[in-house]
Design a binder for these strands. Structure first.
Lengths: 147, 147
DNA sequence: CCTGAATCGGACATTTACATCTGATATACG
DNA sequence: CGTATATCAGATGTAAATGTCCGATTCAGG
């Protein structure tokens, strides 16, 4: 349902968010990879996409790394997902039927409704909200209700 | 988000459901493929999975084909999806963190919640309900609210 | 200015999903 | 029984997602 790339992107962003909260500076790909369990070379690709989407800022050279380009409460889970593996809503009939040009058939309407729910759910949650509910990687910092 | 295989399976089942409603008998793979726009050879594979899941009955030889193995109102959209490309809920921490063994971190809890919503949506809809809302392939038979 | 650290970007390899092909098997019908 | 019609099942081919590698570039610090 969700691609590995999406998983990786969310983990990487969560890590950077936690680092930002802890007052740490830029994070190197190596550290993020180790902490998030993402293959370091592939993580580079994923982070490139996040950078191009304006979610991460990078600094080359010694002492460099990446950090969130804006506050975690200004980043939606939806933004992260769209940056690497966009949810594609069903806007037109996949079969190209003329009769369904202006109104999807019930089948595709149903499928699109599911996509819409997920999209909405991700638009309604910021990265900060995810982090505030408890630690994503380290041991849990508090016991809070999920979701 | 949804695989092509899932799309194909839903289309094939929708076609068989419409055929059943229209009082037609078994449908050949060739006819289904033509109507649903699914590659005929690949459709064979998809239908095998549907048959093994007990959703389709097949009849070999001349005059053969496939038909729904039970009434369309006893088949959930969920059943079809699970038969070919199951929704895999996040039950355990993908990172294998001991601390998250009994409670997912907020990130994965959020992702699983999205999966749960989709799963629930598909469990709450029968194939019959999808068909009753209007034709899936032919021109629309009535104008009804979607979903 | 040199060296080590780190990202960047493209090329390449691997794995999985998608699709096709072919022979085997089962069935209706003459 | 023979033939045409279908599915069945395995082998194979192709495309896309995932993962790796390496040289180029950038930058801090001595």
């Amino acid at each position: 349902m969700f691609s590995k790339t999406t998983e990786y992107a969310l983990r990487a962003m969560a890590h950077c968010g936690e680092a930002q909260r802890a007052g740490k500076g830029t994070q190197t790909a190596e550290v993020i990879a180790e902490r998030t369990g993402v293959p370091v070379a592939y993580l580079g690709k994923v982070m490139q996409a996040l950078r191009r989407a304006g979610l991460l800022q990078s600094q080359r050279g010694a002492g460099g790394g990446v950090r969130l380009s804006r506050s975690a409460d200004e980043i939606l889970v939806f933004d992260i997902v769209q940056a690497v593996d966009p949810i594609e809503r069903i806007l037109a009939c996949p079969l190209g039927l003329e009769a369904h040009k202006h109104r999807l058939c019930p089948l595709h309407a149903k499928m699109d409704a599911a996509l819409a729910m997920v999209e909405e759910s991700f638009k309604n949650t910021t990265l900060a909200q995810v982090l505030e509910s408890g630690g994503t990687f380290g041991p849990p910092t508090e016991v809070a209700g999920s979701n």
